[in-house]
Design a protein around this nucleic acid. Structure first.
Ligand SMILES: [Zn+2]
Ligand SMILES: [Zn+2]
Ligand SMILES: [Zn+2]
Ligand SMILES: [Zn+2]
Lengths: 163, 163
DNA sequence: GATGATTTGCTGCATTGCAACAATTAGTTT
DNA sequence: AAACTAATTGTTGCAATGCAGCAAATCATC
């Protein structure tokens, strides 16, 4: 089990080493429990995203994971990302064509709102059942059977506005 | 002023000719009022989107607007789309890299939810102040100053599920 | 009609994303 | 252990998306 639930935005002074280590440990446990293989490549991609704490494009991940001159092909990264997303360890930010590691340890089906700071690029992750249900109800009222809501809100985070 | 507000999803039996004509008339009036120019290219792009009534990729729009062998360059379409989006006549569907004409005649700042049918590709547009405010409040609770929420919900529309 | 601003055309390119097949690796069975 | 099967990764190639930068044309205004 992980420790405290992380706040919506990672605070600038949090113990990021531990935050990353915890998330990795959780990923390992999860894959173990599901008989899924967290292979070196998948792990490297996850680590890159965890370390960055901000959304990264697939090609940024290539830069970060390619060690000693040999960088992985795009398709390699995309496949690793597919795996991580399917297992709920990574989210895709549609409005940015980017990916971010999830440090919230929630169910894959959970409804999530991403708050994306336009200035610093930080992404907060809010999980609100109320919003999810309201949204779901509005959809049903239109005869629509909802599946996976994508909710991404651009704006300015507290840290950037405070400056 | 337009006639009845269109329903969330365009019904299969609606008078689409009129629907398109109304929307075009509205676009003209709006541009006129704002001293903006609805040039032939911009008009063609808007018409293509209105006619389709479904989200189109930029390169699909190229196919549809290129008459007599001479098709416009991608950049031309993107510029027209920029204009139409800035004026609230077209929305971008982030999760699809596609664009759809707005037939709802609402303010640009209005909060909108897109319901995207995975089977037929139809897109419904719901405008709910309640959801918008809930979302906005959740963001503010996290110290976040929200700007442009992108809310896109995948699922199955009533028409497709009914079959 | 000269001037300045807007719009369009054109060339080229960066980014994103994946298909198809071969090679490798991991896990399982005889 | 050898053989077999399934999963993963490597390689090549390419399609789709999106825009920068500059030149030409068009529009508005004086
Ligand atoms: Zn951290
Ligand atoms: Zn998450
Ligand atoms: Zn219609
Ligand atoms: Zn609209």
């Amino acid at each position: 089990m992980r420790g405290m639930a992380p706040s919506v935005f990672p605070t600038p002074d949090h113990d990021h080493g531990r935050c990353t280590a915890d998330a990795l440990a959780h990923a390992e446990a999860l894959c173990e429990a599901r008989s899924q293989r967290l292979t070196p490549i998948r792990r490297q991609v996850l680590e890159a995203l965890l370390t960055s704490h901000k959304p990264l494009g697939a090609y940024e991940i290539i830069e970060l994971t390619g060690q000693e001159g040999a960088r992985p092909a795009p398709i390699t990264i995309y496949r690793a990302l597919d795996f991580l997303i399917e297992n709920g360890l990574v989210h895709r930010i549609e409005s940015r064509n980017a990916f971010i590691a999830c440090i919230h340890n929630h169910a894959i089906s959970d409804f999530v709102v991403f708050l994306i700071c336009e200035r610093c690029g930080a992404v907060g992750e809010v999980s609100s059942r109320a919003i999810g249900e309201t949204l779901s109800n509005a959809a049903k009222a239109a005869g629509f059977t909802p599946k996976a809501p994508v909710v991404e809100v651009s704006g300015i985070c507290a840290h950037c506005r405070g400056v």
